[in-house]
Amino acid sequence: MSDLSGPTPVLALGGAAFDGYVRVAEEPLRAMFTLRGDLSAKALKNAATGLAAVDMPGQGQVALNGEHCIAWMSPDELLVMTPWDEHAKALGQLDATLTDPALNYTDVSQARALFSLSGPDGLVREVAAKLAPVDLSPAAFPAGSFRRSRIGQVSAAIWMPAPGRIEVVCFRSVADYVFTLLRDAARPGSEVGLFG
C-alpha cells in the first residue's frame, strides 16, 4: 500500500464489546458516505443504489442487505454504507456517477463509530430507549426504521436492521462516551421490562 493512502484505519475502541442483558459491540469498520443533494435526482439515486445494491429508502427508513445499506438522513441527505473492502471501489464509483456539482458526497467512514445492540427484541429496544428520547415500541419503530436523535448528550442515528438487533452510529470523537452509556444501560440487573 502506498504512503498516500495513509495508515491502515483502526476502530475507535478496537472492537470493544460488552455482554450485558443484551450484547453491545463496536462493529467492524464500514465504508460510509454522506450523499447530499436533491433526493429525487436520478444521478443521486443511481449513485446510492449503485453502491449499496438496495432500493431507495422512504422517509425515516433504511434499506439494507447485510452491511450494504442506504439510510434516509434528511430531505436532502442519505447515508450509504458498504463493507470496508469495497471502500476504494466505492470512491471511484461515486466520483464517476456524481458529476453534477449540486450533488455531492463525503467519505465519513472514519468520522463515525458504529455500535450494535443484539439480543431479545424487547430488551434491545429497551436499552436504546433508556438513552434516546424516541418511541422504540415495536409498533412505532418496526424493523427497517431509521431515526436520528440523541443518545445521552450527543447526536446519534439508530436503526433496526432486523428484530433483535439495533445499530447505532455516532461521531467517532464521542465513541467512548456512547459505548459507556450503552454498556451501562445494558448492565445485568437493570432490566425494566418496558417492551415485555
Binding site: Q59, G60, S74, P75, P133, V134, R147, S149, R150
Partner: peptide, 11 residues
C-alpha cells in the same frame, strides 16, 4: 415538518 419525526424538545 422537514423529516416528519415527532420528538421531544431536547432533540
Amino acid at each position: 415538518p422537514c423529516c416528519g419525526q415527532r420528538g421531544e424538545e431536547t432533540e
